Amino acid sequence: MSELEDISHHIHDRISSLQRLLDLSVVEFPQNKIKKLGQELFALERLLEEFEKCVDQQKEQLRHLKELEESFQKDFKDIQHIKENIPAHMLRKKGPVKYMRGRVSYQQLNAVVQSINTAATAKYKILHQSVKTLNNHARKLHQRFKEQETSDTKGQYFVVEDDIREFTQMKVDKRFQGILNMLRHCQRLRELRGGGITRYMLI
């Protein structure tokens, strides 16, 4: 039985008790009955206050649940967009060619693509959550993500090197930079610079 139901039953019992007292008053209403009536009225008032408090708590919980539901829906839409628009790997051309410029294998290339996907998914999961539900570290990340956004990035997904470092084990070194250039050349990424930050826009 819920707390609201329990209090409701108490209120009903008190009202029934008051009704019996009032029924008796038709015949006689001695002093002790008046005192009893006062006690019942006081107890009923306290129960009503408690009932109102529980109702307010239930409303607050319902509001919080609605916020969580909206956050989960945004996360789901974001992940769906990433899955639909970012390739899980670079397609391999038919034939014996297994390396791209700089002797980078498809396996290495796909590892970078996967790290970008992982970082983007984790980043936008945080961005689409209510700030109240985040811990201190996630709140700082949320603030950094917001500060990196510009009018040119509105409605688009992007990551920066710090996102790769934060959410993956990928080393952001010269080889990594070279692979990013290859992805840009293959039109899998687009660079947007500004404020001392290079943003890798997901195409």
Rank of each mutant, 00 (worst) to 15 (best):
D173Q: 02
N85C: 07
S105F: 05
L180Q: 01
K171T: 07
R63T: 14
I116P: 06
L24R: 14
K93G: 12
Q80T: 11
K94N: 11
H137K: 04
K94E: 09
S130T: 13
T118E: 10
S115K: 03
D13K: 04
G38Y: 10
V160E: 00
N110C: 06
D152C: 02
L202E: 05
Q73F: 14
K77C: 12
Y157L: 04
L41P: 02
L91C: 13
D6A: 08
T121G: 08
R103S: 10
N110M: 09
K146L: 07
M1C: 10
S151I: 11
E149R: 10
D78A: 09
L91P: 11
F145P: 01
R144E: 02
E191F: 03
G102H: 04
A120C: 14
C186M: 12
D162G: 00
L18G: 03
K94M: 09
K93I: 13
R165L: 04
K77Q: 13
D75G: 13
R20A: 09
A88T: 13
K77G: 08
D75I: 15
H89R: 09
L189V: 03
Q39H: 09
R103A: 05
Q114I: 09
F76Y: 12
F51M: 15
R165W: 06
S130D: 15
L141T: 06
D152V: 07
A88D: 11
L21Q: 03
L189Q: 00
K94S: 10
R63P: 12
F76G: 15
V160A: 01
V26Y: 15
S130V: 11
D152I: 04
L65S: 10
E45L: 02
N135A: 00
S105Q: 04
M170E: 01
H12D: 12
H9A: 15
V97R: 04
L180E: 03
N135K: 01
N32P: 06
R46S: 06
D6S: 13
R14I: 01
C54G: 14
E45C: 00
N110T: 11
E3A: 14
Q156N: 03
L134E: 02
M201N: 03
A138L: 02
R46V: 08
V160T: 00
G102V: 08
E84F: 04
I15V: 08
E67T: 12
E3N: 15
G196D: 06
R193Y: 08
G194K: 01
G178P: 06
K132W: 13
F29G: 11
V27M: 10
S115M: 12
A43F: 00
R92V: 08
A111M: 07
E5I: 08
L192H: 05
Y157G: 00
E28L: 11
E28Q: 11
K94L: 03
G155E: 12
V131A: 06
D75E: 15
L68R: 10
T150S: 09
T153C: 03
K140T: 08
K174N: 15
L22A: 14
K77D: 11
A120N: 14
S71W: 11
F158I: 07
I164G: 00
K33W: 08
F51Y: 15
E5T: 05
V26E: 15
R144S: 00
E5K: 01
R139M: 09
I179E: 05
H137G: 07
K74M: 14
F145Y: 07
